[in-house]
Simulated assay, not measured.
Amino acid sequence: MTKSVKPAKPAASATASDKLGKTQLVEMVADRTGLGKKQSEEAISATLDAITGALQQGRSVGLPGFGTFSVKATAARTGVKPGTSEKIQIPAGKKVSYKMATDLKKSL
């Protein structure tokens, strides 16, 4: 048995300061799935923990229709300290990269 999922309603006036927080996300999931808010919060937390764990292991995470998260290495480089224009060395590190799914990109 499949549940129908209501499409998200576009915001009336979206601005750069509009942000969907975890609380609002939990409410949306609860409304769309019929789960309670506690169950929705547990499901979202478990999902985020699984994604975080995979990224920490160096694995990429693909979410069909949404995109792919992956870990990329950054090279050591010289930067400029704001305010003083002093040159500083920025060590090599890692960052999380996101590549948007084609379907999502077309729908925006």
Rank of each mutant, 00 (worst) to 15 (best):
A92K: 00
L55F: 12
V80D: 08
P10G: 11
L104S: 04
P10A: 14
G67K: 01
L108M: 03
V5W: 03
G83C: 11
Q57V: 08
L55D: 13
M1L: 14
Q57Y: 07
K87P: 05
D49I: 04
V61S: 03
I90Q: 13
D18F: 14
L48P: 06
K72H: 09
L104H: 02
L25W: 02
G58H: 07
S97V: 10
I44P: 00
R32N: 12
G79M: 08
A101T: 09
K38H: 03
K94N: 09
M28W: 02
T47C: 03
T74V: 11
L55I: 14
V80Y: 04
A50I: 03
V96K: 00
P82Y: 09
T102M: 07
S85M: 15
S17E: 15
S17N: 15
T47F: 05
A14C: 12
V96S: 02
I90W: 11
T23R: 10
L55V: 14
K95L: 01
G62C: 08
K38P: 01
I88D: 12
L48I: 10
L35D: 04
S13I: 14
E42Q: 13
D49L: 00
A54Y: 03
A46K: 08
F66I: 11
G62I: 09
S13F: 13
R77Y: 13
G36I: 13
K38V: 10
S4W: 06
S70C: 06
A8T: 12
F66H: 10
G65N: 08
I88E: 12
V26S: 01
K106H: 11
L25V: 05
I90C: 13
D18T: 13
R32V: 05
S85N: 15
L20S: 00
A101G: 10
K19T: 14
K37G: 09
D18Y: 14
L104T: 02
A16K: 15
F69N: 01
P10C: 11
R32D: 04
T23F: 07
K3S: 04
K37D: 06
S45F: 03
M28I: 13
K106M: 09
M28F: 04
K22S: 11
S70G: 12
K6V: 14
S40N: 09
V5N: 00
M1F: 14
V29C: 03
A16L: 15
K38I: 08
D31H: 01
I51S: 02
S107Y: 09
K87A: 12
A8K: 05
A12I: 04
A92S: 10
K106V: 10
V29K: 01
A30C: 07
T102P: 07
K87F: 07
I88L: 08
D49V: 02
S107P: 05
M1R: 14
T23P: 00
S70Y: 04
G83M: 08
R59E: 15
L25C: 04
V5Y: 00
P7T: 13
S13M: 14
M28Q: 05
L55K: 04
A54F: 06
